[in-house]
């Protein structure tokens, strides 16, 4: 039997936080995406030829959405669980009759919901700058949801691991952002020299962006099956780590 009241309470609480911090949660990613379009899409992109039959401005849309999805999922979910630890209000969560899956479902669910909403907002915003086309809408949504959930889980793990605000920043800044930029947000892996193409395959973000871009334009760096498979592997790894954290009480309980 599930404590649905608790799941609902946490979910609502987390969503309320979004509305309270609307500026930070929704508006700022929209603004930064628009800036990317102005800089990369219009200013530089005008000098870049089409990539595999797609105008450069349109080509970067999936990568830009992924970039926001990854960073926002992580920052939302990590902050959502880190802040109660920091302020001490976590005592209530730990003393409540809620199970691990319920806690994860509600925190990660709320963070992922925000990311999905954000991804769709950016998609619509992009439509204002470049002509958009989504070849496989359902696949697009599937990748959107899987990526949001996976990286919200990653954020959740970071939030539990972090014991200071710096640590909260360090993983997104030093790992996620570089991986996303190098993962083909702004270019096709095929444009790289052969050696770097091989190196790029070790970057998990390549698979996410490739699959996502395929759902838009039918062009991909790796096959759809591999993209989907890898995305599911990341999800599974994140779930295993979360399960371990709660079984051991790692950094949650003394």
């Amino acid at each position: 039997m599930m404590n649905l009241h608790a799941v609902r309470a946490i979910f609502r609480f987390e969503m309320a936080r979004t509305w309270r911090t609307l500026m930070q949660s929704v508006i700022s990613p929209v603004i930064s995406t628009s800036l990317y379009f102005i800089v990369f899409g219009a200013a530089i992109g005008a000098r870049i030829p089409e990539v595999e039959g797609v105008s450069y401005g349109a080509f970067i849309v999936p990568g830009l959405i992924m970039l926001s999805l990854l960073t926002q999922s992580i920052s939302n979910a990590s902050f959502g669980i880190y802040f109660p630890k920091f302020s001490g209000t976590i005592y209530e969560l730990l003393s409540a009759p809620v199970s691990t899956p319920e806690i994860v479902l509600s925190y990660v669910g709320a963070a992922a919901t925000k990311s999905i909403m954000l991804g769709l907002i950016i998609l619509v915003t992009s439509g204002l700058f470049v002509p958009l086309r989504v070849a496989h809408p359902l696949w697009m949504l599937l990748f959107l949801v899987l990526t949001s959930v996976t990286f919200s889980l990653v954020g959740f793990i970071i939030g539990i691991w972090a014991d200071g605000f710096e640590k909260l920043q360090v993983v997104p800044l030093l790992i996620i952002t570089p991986l996303t930029f190098l993962g083909g947000s702004f270019y096709s892996i095929a444009m790289l020299p052969p050696f770097w193409q091989q190196v790029a395959l070790f970057n998990p973000v390549v698979y996410l962006i490739s699959g996502f871009r395929w759902s838009f334009y039918d062009i991909a760096d790796v096959s759809l099956g591999v993209s989907l498979g890898m995305t599911l592997v990341f999800l599974a790894v994140a779930l295993v780590i979360v399960a371990w954290i709660f079984r051991t009480g790692y950094r949650l309980k003394a």
Partner: peptide, 18 residues
């Protein structure tokens, strides 16, 4: 939770406890 209202935080606690 400094930024929550009194009513919401008490309602939240009740929900949390099922």
């Amino acid at each position: 939770d400094a930024f929550e209202s009194v009513w919401n935080t008490v309602t939240f606690s009740r929900g949390l406890f099922g």
